[in-house]
């Protein structure tokens, strides 16, 4: 049945991706929920939360708040929280509750900016899309809000988008960072994972932007349109993956799949449960939504090699080809010390 999961648990949702992007930005992050979504995002999708305190809050909505649409009460809560901490701006992250009651984010943002005197960004995630969409939206909203001034390109600076813990583990992020260092960039800005709000404001000075996962593609294109910044789409963390000869199926993030294809002689097909942009898609590549689509593809596709997160393996107990595990935290909630 469409939408029925019998083996896999749901993947990280858009709201988790949005929080991942905002995590290091010194924002007062308000997840507009009753509490449960906040617990899921922080406790299960944001490994940094165990070690580093961040200003993440639940709106603490109750049924009457939702039914009556008490936006003013929420604004009051946000103003009070600003008084209790030091935050550079407010960030609203949507969940299914505001999706049901059709929260007007523009109005809410305007009210919050007026009352706090600080900028406010809203990411209208709804818990039904996947993390890459939420992360992508958050990146775009951040640069729209803060990357306004056009500054001269700094040939020493590169902007990396899409290296969130949900995208790749710590060792992969380190590989990405080192790769661009070795390419001659003294200043590698890892947006969403170490880069500051000031780095967002200064994004126009990046001489190159790189989308290392799907969640970074829309924002590097946006920055290209706005400032003319050159961009690349590649994931250096998988460049050294040795793929044996034969036909290979990569089930992962689209950029990981694309980068594997470009760095191997093997005949690679890319499939993903997440976004697949047209510019990366080649004949045979496809989006998966259901468990049995994955099973049929692997079992009937004639692939010699399969590259994927270990979480998928219970769906294909009879697969006889070679399996190469490439962790994807958004799928498994497990990686290499994300």
């Amino acid at each position: 049945m469409k939408g029925l999961r019998k083996v896999l648990t749901p993947f990280a949702p858009d709201q988790s991706g949005a929080v991942g992007v905002l995590y290091d930005s010194a924002a007062l992050i308000v997840i507009i929920d009753a509490g449960g979504c906040t617990g899921n995002i922080c406790g299960f999708d944001e490994p940094r939360w165990q070690d580093t305190a961040a200003g993440i809050f639940s709106a603490g909505l109750r049924d009457m708040d939702a039914i009556l649409g008490r936006d003013e009460l929420l604004v009051k809560k946000i103003v009070k929280a600003h008084e209790a901490g030091e935050y550079k701006f407010s960030a609203l992250v949507g969940t299914p509750v505001p999706a049901v009651i059709a929260t007007d984010y523009n109005a809410l943002t305007y009210m919050i900016e007026r009352k706090t005197g600080k900028p406010c960004v809203a990411v209208p995630s709804n818990g039904m899309r996947l993390y890459d969409k939420g992360a992508s939206d958050a990146y775009v909203r951040l640069v729209e809000k803060f990357a306004k001034d056009e500054r001269p390109f700094d040939e020493n600076t590169v902007g990396i988008f899409g290296a969130l813990p949900l995208d790749m583990g710590r060792s992969s992020r380190d590989k990405v960072f080192e790769y661009y260092k070795n390419q001659g960039y003294g200043n590698v800005r890892m947006y969403g994972c170490g880069a500051s709000l000031e780095d967002v404001m200064d994004a126009s000075s990046n001489s190159l932007n790189v989308a290392v996962s799907s969640s970074g593609i829309d924002v590097v294109k946006k920055l290209c349109g706005k400032f003319g910044t050159e961009y690349k789409i590649e994931d250096p963390a998988v460049f050294d993956l040795v793929i044996p000869e034969g036909r290979t199926l990569v089930v992962h993030d689209e950029v990981a799949g694309y980068s594997i294809r470009n760095n191997t002689e093997s005949d690679v097909t890319v499939a993903t449960f997440f976004t697949l942009h047209d510019e990366l898609k080649q004949e045979g590549d496809l989006i998966l939504t259901e468990e049995d689509e994955f099973t049929k593809l692997v079992m009937n596709g004639g692939f010699d090699n399969l590259v994927c997160d270990a979480t998928y393996l219970p769906l294909i107990p009879d697969y006889k080809g070679r399996v190469m595990i490439l962790p994807h935290y958004a799928v498994s909630s497990a990686g290499d010390d994300s």
């Binding site: 999961r5 709201q15 449960g36 969940t95 039904m128």
Partner: peptide, 13 residues
């Protein structure tokens, strides 16, 4: 439910 509500079940399972 929306996928987000079932996400933490990954740990329970």
């Amino acid at each position: 439910a929306p996928g987000c509500c079932g996400r933490n079940t990954r740990y329970v399972t």
